[in-house]
Design a protein around this nucleic acid. Structure first.
Lengths: 113, 113
DNA sequence: TTATTATACGTCGTAATCCAATGCATAGCA
DNA sequence: TGCTATGCATTGGATTACGACGTATAATAA
């Protein structure tokens, strides 16, 4: 999958996943990979900074928990503001996808300018 | 229009426009704006470096010409390799757009991990 | 015991990209 | 003389993805 195409969409995908329920970082990455039929690979260098930024902006909230196996992990929950942000980003993506279709799929036009 | 969403798609749009016929830089920018119903604004800092990179990669070819008004401009033509590259990029974009739809538009799933 | 894999968190540096700001030059118009 | 449009270009800042690396626990295999 083309690296640059992903740019700007990582937070949107994370919010979309968390919209279905709280998950910890590692599970979020796995869930995005699952939803994309393994076409997307979510790396640590992408995931964790993105989560921290989302929490800093108040769109998600992290809570440390310990599993029965004694392993610590940080479970993230989407906030009210996060839901609004997701809606806004979802809309922006749809708009952009439409524009792209218009530009790269556009019909022929008069040659020179 | 969201700035980050554009990332990586600029060369694709330029190739798509040139696919319809040769144009000089300034006209390419105006054409992309026209096709996007002015939702996209193409700035010089984005346009010219992108054109130079495309020419360096051999996907477009620039040719200086002088108009009847005596104004010089560089007219770009898409190459054979450029057509192939456009096809590849067009495909990559479609794939990515589908993946995005799957991830952010996905149906509900079992909560916790 | 030792090695490997999976889980789970994180940081840092590099590369890629968009764009605001700035610059140069020509042309038409008020 | 100023303003706007055309037409080219560079530079530096900001944002982003990710490879590489580091830490730690647990299960599985040799």
């Amino acid at each position: 999958m083309e690296r640059e195409l992903l740019k700007g969409n990582t937070p949107t995908m994370i919010l979309a996943v968390l919209c279905q329920g709280p998950l910890h970082g590692y599970a979020i990455a796995r869930e995005i990979e699952r939803r994309s039929d393994n076409q997307l690979k979510f790396k640590e260098g992408t995931l964790y900074p993105a989560l921290h930024a989302l929490e800093y902006d108040g769109w998600i909230k992290g809570q440390w928990e310990t599993t029965s196996q004694g392993r610590k992990r940080k479970v993230y929950t989407i906030t009210q503001a996060g839901h609004a942000e997701l809606k806004r980003r979802h809309h922006a993506w749809t708009e952009f996808a439409n524009v792209m279709a218009q530009v790269i799929g556009g019909e022929p036009h008069g040659q020179q300018g």
